[in-house]
Computed example of a mutant assay.
Amino acid sequence: MLLAKLAEKIVNEVRKLIGEDIIVVNTDGTIIASTDRTRIGMFHEGALIVSKEKRKLIITKGGEQNLKGVKAGISFPIFFQNNVIGVIGITGEPLRVTPFGEIIRKMTELLISENYYAEQFDRQSRAMETFVMDWIQTKDWDDSIINRARILEINIHLRRIIAIIDFESFDYIISRDAWTSMVKWFSPNPNDIVVRWGNERIVILLDFSNNPTKETINKKLEGFISFLRGQFGLSAFVGIGQAADSKEIRSSYRQAERALKVSKQKMKIIFDEELTLEMVLDELSPKTIHDFITRTIGPILTDKELIATLKELFKQNHSLKKTSDQLHIHINTLHYRLKKIDEYTQLNTGNIHDLLIMYLAILFLDVHTKISG
C-alpha cells in the first residue's frame, strides 16, 4: 500500500527534475499527493484505468472531457515486487512530458524500494534493540527468549563479551544512513550484535566463541572508534565487560558499564578486568560517597588552592619536590599549605592511614560526585 507520506516525498523529489504538476494516485483512483494541493482527495478515473490495466495512459487536451478528474498529460503504473501499488501522473502537453515519463516512473519505483528496505532495516533494528534489552535484563529464561532469538537469526548459545560505547558531546540525531554504516562495519562477523541504546550509546555483543585475545578486541574497537571519528566526527568512550555465557550476559553488561565510567576519566578504552579500586567504588551509594567526602576533606572543599595542592600531591606520588615544582611554588609554601590541610581536616598528610583517607576522598570527588574542588 502506498501511503500519503511517501507519496508526498515522491512528489517533492520528482518536482526537482521537471517543472510540471505531479500527482500520485492510489490503486482506488484517489489522488493522495500532488503539487497542486487542491487536487488531493479527488478521484482520477485515468489513474484507475492505469492501475487495473497495468499500462501507461496518455490523455490529450481533447480527452480531458472523457474521463473524470483528469488533465492532459501521462500516467504510469508504479510497480513494486511485480504488483501495481499506485500511479504517478505528469500534467502537461503529452508530447512535451512523455520523454520524462519512463525516467520518472523508474525514479519513483527506486524511491519506493529504498523506503521499503529502510523501513525493514528500522524495524529490524528496533526488534533487535528490544530483544537485547530484554535479554540483558532477564534473569529467568523461558522459551520466548529462545524463540525470539531464532526469529532474529541470533545464535543465543555463544559466549559473548559486551562493549558499551558512549558518544562524547553528542547533540544531534544519528541518521538512518549513519546507523546503517555503523552496523555494516561489524558485518564481517555475523555473530557480532550491534544495537542502538537511545541516541548517545551503542551496545555491542561481540562473539567470544573463538576466545579472541584482549589485544584483538581492543584493536577491533579502536578501529571502530577511528571509523566513527573519521566518518562522522564523533569521539567516544568505551567500556568492555568480561566474557559470559548467554544466560549470564547481564553480568558482562554491568561490568561494561563500570568500565565505561573509568573510560570517561582516563580517555581510553577500558576493560573491566583492568579495574581494581574502581570495583569497590562502584558499589558505594552516592550518599555514602557524599558523606565520606564531607567527613574527610569537607572543610577544604571551598578552598580551590588547597584542593589543587592535595590533588597534585597524589599525582606526584607524595613527592614534595615534584609537587612544588608542578605547582610553581616554593617548597616552604607547599609545607604551609599542607599544614593548613592538616589543621582544617584534622588529618595528617604525613600519616599513611590519613593519607589513604584523603586519597579516597579526592578520588570520590573526581570520579563520582558533582562537588567542585
Rank of each mutant, 00 (worst) to 15 (best):
G239K: 04
G198R: 05
M107C: 03
S252Y: 05
F131M: 06
I329N: 02
N317L: 03
V203H: 06
Y344Q: 12
R150D: 11
R196H: 07
R254M: 11
L228T: 10
E257V: 12
I31N: 05
N218K: 15
P188K: 13
R39S: 08
G63W: 12
V203A: 10
Q242C: 07
I204G: 01
E200M: 01
G373E: 14
P212I: 10
S246Q: 08
G86K: 08
E273K: 06
D342R: 14
S125D: 15
L313G: 04
V11Q: 01
E278G: 07
K247A: 04
G29V: 11
I145H: 05
L158A: 07
Y344T: 08
T333P: 00
T180D: 09
M107S: 01
S251G: 03
R196M: 09
L327G: 03
I78P: 05
I173T: 14
F232D: 04
K247F: 03
R254C: 05
N189G: 02
R229K: 14
I90P: 03
D354P: 08
T38Y: 10
T349P: 04
L158M: 06
N66L: 12
L17W: 06
F227P: 01
G373P: 15
N332L: 06
T288D: 12
G19K: 04
I146P: 00
M133L: 01
A72T: 09
G89Q: 08
Q120M: 14
D28A: 01
H353R: 15
V14M: 00
V84H: 04
K339H: 12
F237I: 05
I162W: 02
K16Q: 05
L327R: 08
Q124R: 15
V183F: 01
N12M: 02
I352P: 15
F121L: 09
S125C: 08
H290S: 15
I58N: 06
W197L: 15
I240D: 01
N115A: 09
A149T: 02
F208K: 11
E153K: 15
H157Y: 06
D134M: 07
K322T: 05
L320A: 00
Q81S: 11
F314D: 07
L2G: 04
S246W: 14
I371R: 15
I341L: 12
E20P: 02
R160V: 05
D171S: 15
A361V: 02
I293P: 01
E257W: 12
S324H: 09
D36F: 06
T369K: 14
E168Q: 12
K68F: 14
T276I: 13
R229D: 11
G230A: 13
L327S: 00
D134C: 03
L95T: 13
P188Y: 13
L111K: 11
S285D: 13
I269W: 02
Q137W: 04
D342H: 11
T309V: 09
K322H: 02
I146G: 02
R196A: 11
F314M: 10
D140M: 06
S251F: 03
G198P: 07
F170V: 07
E129M: 03
D140Q: 08
I173G: 07
V183C: 06
V50I: 10
S209M: 09
K264G: 03
I58Q: 07
T138S: 14
K220Y: 04
F292D: 02
I300N: 01
E257I: 12
K184M: 07
G73Y: 15
